[in-house]
């Protein structure tokens, strides 16, 4: 099968409404991604912690959208449930640790936590969250995708 044939099949049969979804995704992504820059511009003369929190609140979820879009395409092209599970696990792990690091470094900056507390806080939270993320990011995705494939 030629590359163009494959693209046609993907856009016409496997991915109905791809164009509209892509446009919606790009608009939503740009709108949210602009917010931290506006916030950073407005508070430019403030301490670093003030810049970290807009990133945690707006930046991380916006950055999260790019791989989510990739996974949506991967799913639509019939990737195996295990591969999707692996991808979702690392995506959620990356999002969680980015937010956690943002909070810890922000906490350091405003002197609510010491350097060692921040490092150990990260370790303990990772140890608690990794199995939880395995359940929500891997096992649940695996169960959903397997059920969907069995239905088809």
């Amino acid at each position: 099968m030629r590359g163009s044939d494959r693209r046609n099949i993907a856009s016409e049969k496997l991915l109905p409404g791809t164009g509209a979804k892509t446009v919606r995704f790009v608009c939503w992504y740009l709108a949210i991604e602009l917010l931290p820059f506006i916030a950073i511009h407005l508070v430019y003369h403030k301490p670093v912690a003030v810049l970290v929190f807009p990133y945690v609140v707006f930046g991380a979820p916006a950055l999260f959208q790019v791989p989510v879009y990739g996974l949506w395409l991967l799913d639509a092209r019939g990737a195996s449930p295990r591969l999707l599970g692996w991808c979702w696990f690392w995506l959620m792990q990356a999002l969680f640790s980015t937010i956690l690091l943002g909070m810890l470094i922000g906490g350091l900056d405003v002197h609510v936590a010491s350097r060692d507390e921040a490092i150990w806080g990260f370790v303990v939270m990772q140890m608690i969250m990794s199995p939880i993320i395995f359940f929500t990011g891997y096992l649940k995705v695996l169960a959903n995708k397997t059920a969907k494939q069995e239905l088809v």
Partner: peptide
Amino acid sequence: DFFWLMLTSGLYTGVVVFLLDTYLP
């Protein structure tokens, strides 16, 4: 998969902690 995800996740934590320990003032 569970074993490998937990192991790589732990290694990732180790790398991040190493970077924090090295570069945090």
